[in-house]
């Protein structure tokens, strides 16, 4: 039986891990390779680099960073942010990423998911969906949550999978950074709609929130960022709560 996964997300820009401070600026919080190794040692099941580089020059440093990290990291590494073409995906995989998440580019051109899955396999294609509650449904947004689309998140998730995505990274824009817990209704709706793993994202404020994403949301994996980087909790502490909740998780020997 598959274990539930705890995925740690690091925002990177220009080859460094950064953190937004009240939307006013970015603070350098450390060396990505060092942080990646630390989270692996603590028991993270997977790592994600979200590239928030604004320029092509900054982005070019991402591949070198992925290469340096892959050489020292022995858990899966996913890369997302700014991936637009099949060649971008190929470059990420060659650099050492195991998976690539595609967001705005998939909405603009859904065939991109199919092309990537056919060339590299569904296991490395992650459909990244940013969704915001809109009445009884959830609307898909692109471009970092700034541009609304006409897509319904559940319907779009199903289409992404039909087109070749092997996983869905589902982020609630309403909950992102709020630390009030994952959007459980959204997570459950998408988990029930697709046959591939769903990674819940956005809103983790405590270990109990992560547990709820699994138990009530039906997620296969949960993405955690800020509460770990800020030292509010640890991978080990979250996993202890999950274990107490009767969830099947990987223990670190």
């Amino acid at each position: 039986m598959l274990t539930r996964r705890l995925v740690v997300c690091l925002d990177v820009k220009g080859g460094r891990v950064v953190k937004g401070v009240q939307f006013e600026g970015l603070r350098d919080v450390g060396d990505p390779v060092e942080l990646a190794r630390r989270y692996e040692a603590e028991g993270a099941d997977e790592l994600t680099f979200l590239d928030i580089s604004a320029s092509a020059e900054e982005r070019d440093t991402l591949w070198e960073l992925v290469r340096r990290t892959a050489e020292q990291l022995f858990i899966p590494l996913a890369v997302g942010g700014g991936v637009r073409t099949v060649d971008d995906v190929g470059r990420a995989l060659r650099a050492g990423a195991d998976k690539v998440s595609i967001n705005s580019a998939a909405v603009a051109n859904p065939a991109l998911l199919t092309a990537c899955a056919e060339r590299f396999g569904a296991q490395c294609v992650v459909a990244s969906i940013d969704a915001k509650r809109d009445g009884e449904r959830w609307r898909v947004y692109t471009h970092g949550g700034r541009k609304p689309t006409d897509l319904d998140a559940v319907v779009w998730a199903r289409e992404c999978v039909a087109r070749g995505a092997g996983e869905v990274l589902l982020t609630s824009i309403d909950r992102d950074g709020a630390r009030t817990g994952y959007d459980l209704a959204l997570t459950r709706a998408v988990s029930e709609a697709v046959d591939v793993p769903v990674i819940a994202s956005g809103g983790a404020g405590s270990a109990a929130h992560v547990r709820d994403a699994f138990q009530e949301g039906g997620a296969d994996a949960a993405l955690v960022a800020g509460i770990l980087h800020d030292g509010l909790t640890t991978v080990g502490a979250i996993k202890a709560v999950l274990r107490e909740g009767g969830l099947h998780i990987r223990s670190v020997a």
């Binding site: 039986m1 598959l2 274990t3 996964r5 099941d45 396999g121 569904a122 296991q123 092997g166 996983e167 046959d195 591939v196 793993p197 296969d220 994996a221 990987r250």
Partner: peptide, 10 residues
């Protein structure tokens, strides 16, 4: 039902 199998297993 869930294919590919992605994740940690015993």
């Amino acid at each position: 039902k869930r294919v590919p199998e992605i994740g940690w297993n015993q």
